[in-house]
């Protein structure tokens, strides 16, 4: 940090660049970021790097079922994290499971973010009745435990990956709406919005080109933490058997599959997917926690 003050940077310091340097200054946040990046890369590359395609029944030998970590299967593959009851390589299963967990988590967070941010901005910009109606719904939504709301929705809609995403979106949008409304209300009274209004710019343009960018920092913080929550919630729902179908096992379902074997001491079928889940969630939360600190001056409550 001190070296930057000794040798003044010639480059102009944009808020974004300052944000990057502040973020990089925290070892914990950077650690979280690096771990998360590795997880994402591994998940993306899963089809090419895993020793086995866990869904290609041709490569799976049921005789390899419930092998201990480090054991060598009949097909000659070393199963570093053991195998499940079907003889599936756990490492491969976890990497494929990560793909689904991350997709569902990030996807639902993204959609919820879009829906929530739009409604939040609408509430802040329109005010009056629109505002109070939207915020009533937000309050009701937030007063209800997420797991219960998700259960309710899945009970009505049925299982399936799409329904899980819908449930997660319905559960999560309110957080974004409240956050964006809060900061948009502050920003709305600033001069630059008034100036834009005086220029008679179209409302849509004011909303998305002027207001939204200034509500982004808190939105990013909430978004980061919500991704972690979405991943955890999806895993929980899948564990309960209400989430993704057996053909597309996420980490939660892998853990559920190993549950019955855990009591007989075959811990690895549940344990390692759990560790993968844990590392993912914690790394995201570490980033989120620090992001909140870095962006704090703009997060005035």
């Amino acid at each position: 940090m001190s070296s930057t003050t000794v040798a003044p940077a010639v480059r102009e310091e944009t808020p974004f660049r300052r944000f990057l340097s502040e973020f990089a200054a925290s070892k914990i946040a950077m650690g979280g970021f690096i771990v998360f990046a590795i997880i994402v890369v591994l998940a993306v590359l899963a089809p090419w790097i895993t020793p086995q395609d866990p869904y290609d029944l041709g490569t799976i030998d049921i005789m390899d079922g419930r092998l201990e970590p480090g054991a060598v299967g009949a097909s000659g593959i070393t199963h570093w994290l053991g195998t499940d009851d079907q003889g599936r390589d756990m490492l491969s299963g976890i990497l494929y499971g990560l793909r689904i967990s991350l997709t569902v988590g990030a996807g639902s967070a993204l959609i919820a973010g879009l829906v929530g941010a739009s409604l939040g901005m609408l509430a802040a910009y329109a005010g009056g009745r629109t505002d109070s109606v939207i915020m009533r719904v937000v309050d009701l939504q937030l007063s209800f435990p997420t797991i219960l709301a998700a259960l309710m929705i899945l009970a009505f809609l049925g299982k399936g990956i799409l329904n899980v995403v819908i449930a997660l979106v319905i559960v999560e949008w309110a957080y974004y709406a409240r956050t964006v409304r809060g900061s948009a209300l502050v920003e709305r009274r600033r001069e630059y919005i008034e100036a834009a209004q005086c220029l008679a710019l179209p409302t849509r343009r004011i909303l998305f080109r002027h207001l939204l960018p200034n509500c982004l920092p808190p939105l990013i913080v909430v978004g980061t933490i919500q991704v972690a929550r979405a991943i955890a919630l999806e895993a929980t729902l899948s564990f309960l058997g209400l989430g993704v179908p057996i053909t597309e096992p996420s980490l939660g379902l892998l853990i559920a599959n190993g549950y019955e074997y855990m009591l007989s001491g075959k811990y690895w079928i549940s344990f390692y997917p759990g560790v993968a889940l844990l590392i993912t969630i914690v790394s995201i939360n570490l980033m989120g926690d620090h992001l909140r600190d870095v962006l704090n001056p703009r997060l005035k409550k």
């Binding site: 955890a232 929980t236 549950y259 855990m262 009591l263 001491g265 759990g274 844990l278 939360n285 926690d289």
Partner: peptide, 28 residues
Amino acid sequence: ILGFSLPTFWVGLMLIMVFAVQLGWLPS
């Protein structure tokens, strides 16, 4: 922070694994 991030169901499994299966102190 860990208590906030850990998924409940997984911690439950770990509790069973450690205290019920490995140590045998408590019923699962």
